[in-house]
Amino acid sequence: MQNLTALSLKTTDGTLYVLDQTLLPQQQQWRACRSVAQLVGMIKQLQLRGAPAIGIGACLLLALRAEQGVSRQQLQQDAEILRAARPTAVNLMNNIDSMLHALATPDYATAAVACAEALFAEDVALCQQMAAHGAALVQPDEQLLTHCNTGGLATAGVGTALGVINLAHQQGKNIRLWVDETRPLLQGGRLTAWECQQLGIPYQLICDNMAAMLMARGQVDRLFVGADRIAANGDFANKVGTYSLAVLAQYHQVPFYVVAPHTTVDLNCPDGSVIPIEQRDASEVRGVCGAFVQTTFHQIIWAPQDAPVFNPAFDVTPASLVTGWVLDTGVYSQQDIASGVLQQLV
């Protein structure tokens, strides 16, 4: 396999490396990943995260193992184990299906490598296309708001929603960005803020519960968020807290856009009610695990040790609250979605 490099993933001399996102922004540490169990652990611990990046990372590992002579049967079993690592991110399922098709061919190792490399290149291209479509919506001097992390850390390319925002910035539109911290794991505060600093995007970090006040003051002109799965009717799952923003945006008449590649559309889900929602560990809500203090990792707990916790990783935003769907193929309105345009794209 050729050496490939993205912000959170790279292959070098036959080995997959993952940038450990749990250590950002204080440390940038690449971890070698050589086994399926190791990658599953990285995905579950959010060392590797973002729907496109998860799917591509899984395929790169399968391809490297195929190149190393692992049997077809073992690789097929590995693929199913990886498929189950994150239940909400449909990109992972779609990419695994592509790899299983490659593994069914006579020269499965060559086919697997070609498939993984093609999926990597495809995501880079899809991100560029989404950025172009979305940036065209942004007007000069606008104040934008985003949630969670949707940049290069979450994809093989420039990102989804943050890719749009970055291109608008590069076009000299003098934007400013509000970055939700994104409770409970602070992907906005830790990751999006870090990416904005790397890219030179003017931003301010806010707590999630400050967005309503900003909208009421007229300090948000447009919202861009990502998606882990889009149902056939346009409902979509994204990091928990997205639904709240959509409700606030509609009340304050602020345009609300979801940005995702067409590979995130799941026609097997007729609507958002059947999208599986991952439940995560209670410790993430009871406090902060892995806070970096000087050179030591600590666990900071502010709730009672046995406090009952509800901790869904995602929520579902109904299509009725969405101004537009920014895909790699274009920008679609509610009327477009109602007419069945998503069924024509997948």
Rank of each mutant, 00 (worst) to 15 (best):
272 G>A: 10
80 E>Y: 06
192 T>D: 05
304 P>C: 08
49 R>N: 09
341 V>L: 05
256 F>R: 01
303 A>M: 12
248 L>P: 05
19 L>A: 03
177 L>N: 07
240 V>A: 14
297 F>W: 00
111 A>R: 12
58 A>I: 06
53 A>H: 06
137 L>A: 06
313 A>T: 07
333 S>H: 09
68 Q>C: 07
264 T>L: 02
218 G>M: 07
342 L>S: 12
282 A>Q: 13
50 G>P: 13
307 A>T: 14
175 I>W: 12
226 G>L: 01
26 Q>I: 11
169 H>F: 08
132 A>Y: 04
5 T>C: 01
21 Q>E: 11
17 Y>R: 07
120 F>I: 05
77 Q>H: 13
54 I>G: 07
274 V>D: 10
50 G>I: 10
47 Q>N: 08
8 S>Y: 07
78 D>H: 15
285 V>R: 14
277 I>K: 05
214 L>C: 07
215 M>Y: 02
243 Y>V: 00
226 G>R: 02
126 L>W: 01
153 L>N: 10
246 A>H: 04
57 G>A: 09
324 G>A: 07
75 L>P: 13
6 A>S: 15
338 A>E: 07
287 G>Q: 12
259 V>S: 03
241 G>M: 00
29 Q>I: 13
109 A>M: 10
242 T>F: 01
130 M>Q: 08
98 S>N: 05
218 G>H: 11
201 I>N: 11
260 A>G: 09
57 G>R: 12
126 L>T: 04
48 L>K: 04
151 G>W: 04
281 D>T: 03
21 Q>A: 11
88 T>S: 12
144 L>W: 04
107 D>I: 00
28 Q>S: 14
272 G>M: 05
82 L>G: 12
258 V>E: 02
307 A>L: 15
132 A>H: 13
324 G>R: 02
334 Q>M: 00
4 L>G: 06
32 A>N: 06
266 D>H: 06
91 N>C: 07
99 M>P: 10
169 H>P: 05
231 A>V: 13
328 D>G: 05
107 D>Q: 14
336 D>N: 15
190 R>W: 01
301 I>L: 14
94 N>R: 13
307 A>Y: 10
290 G>D: 03
123 D>T: 02
86 R>S: 13
119 L>I: 11
242 T>I: 03
149 N>K: 09
248 L>I: 06
284 E>M: 10
158 V>K: 08
73 Q>T: 15
103 L>F: 06
231 A>M: 10
117 E>S: 07
271 D>S: 14
278 E>V: 09
251 Y>K: 04
227 A>R: 09
283 S>A: 15
35 S>W: 03
46 L>C: 04
274 V>E: 11
94 N>A: 08
252 H>I: 00
81 I>H: 10
182 T>F: 01
